[in-house]
Amino acid sequence: MSMFHAVVWLDHQSAKVLQFDEAHVQAEKVKAHSHHTKQHGSAVRSEHEFFGEVCDALNGIEEVLVVGSSTAQSDFKHYADKHRPQTAKHIVGYETVDHPTENQLIAMAKQYFLKYDRMAGTPSPM
Rank of each mutant, 00 (worst) to 15 (best):
M1S: 10
M1E: 07
S2G: 12
M3A: 10
M3Y: 04
A6R: 08
V8S: 02
V8Y: 03
L10D: 07
D11T: 05
H12E: 07
H12L: 06
A15C: 08
A15H: 05
A15I: 08
K16E: 12
K16T: 07
V17T: 14
L18S: 09
F20G: 14
D21L: 03
D21W: 01
V25F: 02
Q26M: 06
A27F: 02
E28V: 13
E28T: 11
K29P: 02
V30L: 11
K31F: 07
A32W: 01
S34W: 04
H35N: 15
H35P: 08
T37G: 15
K38C: 03
K38H: 14
H40V: 09
S42W: 02
A43I: 06
R45Y: 06
E49K: 02
F50P: 13
F51H: 12
G52P: 01
E53I: 01
V54W: 01
C55A: 15
I61L: 04
E62P: 09
E63G: 12
L65C: 12
V66T: 09
V66I: 04
V66Q: 11
V66W: 04
V67H: 05
V67M: 11
G68K: 02
G68P: 07
T71K: 10
A72Y: 02
A72M: 00
A72G: 10
A72L: 00
Q73E: 06
Q73M: 06
K77I: 00
K77N: 08
P85V: 03
Q86M: 09
A88N: 02
K89Y: 00
H90Y: 01
I91Q: 07
V92Q: 13
V92S: 12
V92H: 04
G93N: 05
G93W: 00
E95Y: 01
T96I: 11
V97N: 03
V97L: 02
V97C: 03
H99A: 15
P100S: 02
T101F: 01
T101A: 15
T101P: 02
N103Y: 02
L105A: 09
I106N: 03
A107N: 13
A107Q: 10
A109C: 04
K110Y: 00
Q111G: 09
Q111D: 14
F113C: 11
F113H: 03
L114E: 07
L114R: 14
K115A: 12
Y116V: 10
Y116S: 15
R118L: 05
R118D: 02
R118P: 06
M119N: 13
M119T: 12
A120E: 11
G121Q: 05
T122I: 14
T122N: 06
M126W: 05
